[in-house]
Design a protein around this nucleic acid. Structure first.
Lengths: 226, 226
DNA sequence: GTGCTTGTCAAGTGTTCGATTGAATAGAAG
DNA sequence: CTTCTATTCAATCGAACACTTGACAAGCAC
């Protein structure tokens, strides 16, 4: 049955990929980099770790081939190595949601109660945008919007939304989206809008999934894709 | 930015899935269980580990929700928890093949040189089976064939193939398939057939991928799916 | 050049992991 | 009830891991 040693080595190779994702902190990094490239310092502050520690996590992911780097001045930007990495991350989330017993309670603890939030599928949004009866809000931080967003969406980061709700037209339903299925921004936005009497819904998942499924995307500056 | 503790806990949850796959031995187990359920002893012997050690690996995967168990007499059968787990495993393999630098040499060390092997895509095989100009051989061990195989394929485990090559018609091209892209059985079969003057090719990937992509499947006994 | 910023590297510490061994359990068979 | 088989549990040991701290390197600003 083949060569045991070689077979073990091959599967240890596959395991290097999963090992690179097998820490909660590194998972957070992948989820973050799905929005676009980030410097080490930005990543460190997003995941709440020291720069040195973050750097070491990134080195591991780099060795496994999950991320790539780009130097600009004395800053180093990390980004995902390719679209397949996103597929992998989506598969991990799906399996966790479907099979990991305690994920529901973990998600509820972080996201709060979602039962009052309307959600709308990508297909449905495409349809309704074509009919022109929705306003689509990108509620991520503005730099992420600039790096790439749903074609036709308007940038409206959370803090800005609270100040400028009045500017949002009330005659159409509002759809908010953010980083992905486990991101709280769109939830917050929808709750805020509902409280002010808007009809508001949350897009399923977030921008990376929209883009990954071949839906139309715009960006202000050219940024690396794959 | 939400609750750091809850966010960390949530992503540690996702990491439990990848951790369950982050050992070469456990990866081998998933690859094996993709063919159907197995007892602990069978798994242990396939991955070349002690039963006690294998049992512990299985316990870990069970806690992460990747596998499920079924008791029959005093034997316990493990199987994958669902089709999404297969998708996840496929994504891991893809990312490894695409981004992990040393995977090529690891694969070459285990599989040998594949450059002389013709391969045929699933779509092409569907097409040619419809035209009736190919013989499809399932070269996995016979019990796996019985648990599920490509509709219209013939069971021909490797040792049997060597004894009964003459029985295989020479007027049509032969397509062999086995457990998956990193399984050596079909490679062996194709090499054997080529040596005897057959036109032979290997199906891309293997049975689990065929089934997972919605292609027609038959099985002799009813066995659990999804 | 000196200083400043951004990242990496190396060493140290407590924790977790993989494998081994041997004992313990659950169910089937006698 | 005893014996056998299949599996799990518990204790152990060395290796690997996550995070910290402090030193070092690379690029900019002056």
């Amino acid at each position: 049955m083949g060569d045991r040693v070689a077979k073990d080595a091959l599967f240890d190779g596959f395991a290097r990929i999963t090992k690179a994702l097998s820490s909660g902190r590194r998972s957070e990094i992948v989820d973050l980099l799905a929005q676009g490239e980030r410097s080490v310092e930005e990543i460190a502050s997003e995941i709440g770790q020291s720069v040195a520690n973050t750097s070491q996590h990134l080195q591991q992911m780099l060795k496994a081939g999950l991320v790539r780097t780009r130097r600009d001045g004395n800053r180093i930007y990390y980004s995902l190595a390719g679209g397949r990495v996103l597929d992998l991350w989506a598969a991990v989330r799906d399996v966790a949601a479907e099979h990991l017993a305690e994920l529901d309670s973990l998600a509820a603890a972080y996201l709060g109660d979602r039962s009052a939030l309307q959600t709308i599928s990508r297909a449905e949004l495409v349809d309704r945008m074509r009919r022109g009866d929705v306003v689509v809000l990108d509620v991520r931080p503005e730099p992420e919007f600039r790096a790439g967003h749903i074609a036709g969406a308007v940038s409206m980061p959370l803090d800005e939304l609270r100040r400028k709700v009045r500017g949002v037209p009330k005659d159409r339903e509002v759809v908010a989206y953010c980083r992905g299925p486990y991101c709280v921004y769109a939830d917050d936005a929808v709750r805020t809008l509902q409280r002010r009497g808007y009809r508001a819904a949350r897009l399923e998942d977030g921008f990376p999934e929209w883009s990954r499924n071949g839906h139309p995307v715009e960006n202000d500056v050219d940024s690396p894709a794959s």
